[in-house]
Amino acid sequence: MSDKETTKGVESITALKAFAHPLRIRLYYALRNAKVATVSYLADAVEAPVAQVSYHLRQLHQHGFIEPAPQHARDARERWWQLSNQRLRWHASSVLGEPEAAAMATMIRNSAVSEQYRLIGEFNESAEWDTGWLDAAFMADGTIDLTCAELAEMHAELMAVVERYAALSKRHLAPPGVERVMYVLHGFPVRRTTDDTT
């Protein structure tokens, strides 16, 4: 869920609590995908009542994850939001000794993965994209044998590639055909199902 960019991470239990709600995670993804959005747009995106969405947005704002974007408002009643430069990220080892934090971190990860794959399913079932986008979109998985250090190095190298392409999002004059593109990266160990180590 975390973007490196020029962001700051948050690891406190208070921040975890603020994020530890499935609807807030859906709102976070919806706002990130939209870049800026009104409460009513986000309510439609997550299929929840405006009042409920407003409450959860205020909680995300209170803890610094989103911020108002008043430059987009057409009048004083219209409330626009955008992500702040604060992201929720933590090292697994930092929450292991605190059962409450560990439980919230697990819930956040599981809710985030559910939202990621909901969006993937939405794309797979959509008929709105032309063949160029359908051919460019990709999904890959596999298994390789690595040490813990090598897995961490692989992650760093993959993120360096992502950051190179993320820099294109900052172009002042984007070429025709630019769309918001979501990427999903997971790398984790799996238990071998046999004694075969070759």
Score class of each variant (00 low, 15 high):
2 S>V: 12
9 G>N: 11
12 S>H: 01
12 S>I: 01
18 A>Y: 04
19 F>M: 15
20 A>S: 15
22 P>S: 11
25 I>M: 01
27 L>A: 06
28 Y>L: 15
30 A>P: 04
32 R>E: 09
35 K>P: 00
37 A>Q: 03
38 T>H: 03
41 Y>A: 14
42 L>V: 03
45 A>F: 09
51 A>I: 09
52 Q>P: 00
52 Q>E: 15
55 Y>V: 15
63 H>T: 02
69 A>V: 09
69 A>P: 02
74 R>P: 01
79 R>W: 06
84 S>D: 01
86 Q>R: 13
88 L>M: 10
90 W>H: 04
92 A>E: 10
92 A>R: 14
93 S>P: 00
94 S>W: 09
94 S>K: 09
96 L>Q: 12
97 G>D: 08
99 P>M: 00
101 A>R: 02
103 A>K: 12
104 M>H: 02
106 T>Y: 11
107 M>V: 05
111 S>K: 05
112 A>L: 07
113 V>I: 10
115 E>I: 08
117 Y>P: 01
118 R>V: 04
122 E>L: 11
128 E>R: 14
131 T>V: 13
134 L>Y: 00
136 A>N: 07
136 A>I: 00
137 A>N: 05
138 F>Y: 09
139 M>A: 15
139 M>Q: 13
141 D>M: 12
145 D>S: 15
149 A>Q: 11
149 A>E: 13
150 E>G: 11
150 E>R: 14
151 L>R: 12
152 A>L: 09
156 A>M: 04
160 A>S: 05
163 E>N: 07
166 A>N: 11
167 A>T: 09
167 A>C: 06
168 L>P: 01
170 K>W: 07
171 R>A: 11
171 R>V: 01
173 L>K: 13
173 L>I: 13
181 V>H: 03
182 M>R: 02
183 Y>T: 13
184 V>A: 07
185 L>Y: 09
186 H>V: 10
187 G>Y: 05
195 D>I: 08
195 D>P: 00
198 T>R: 14
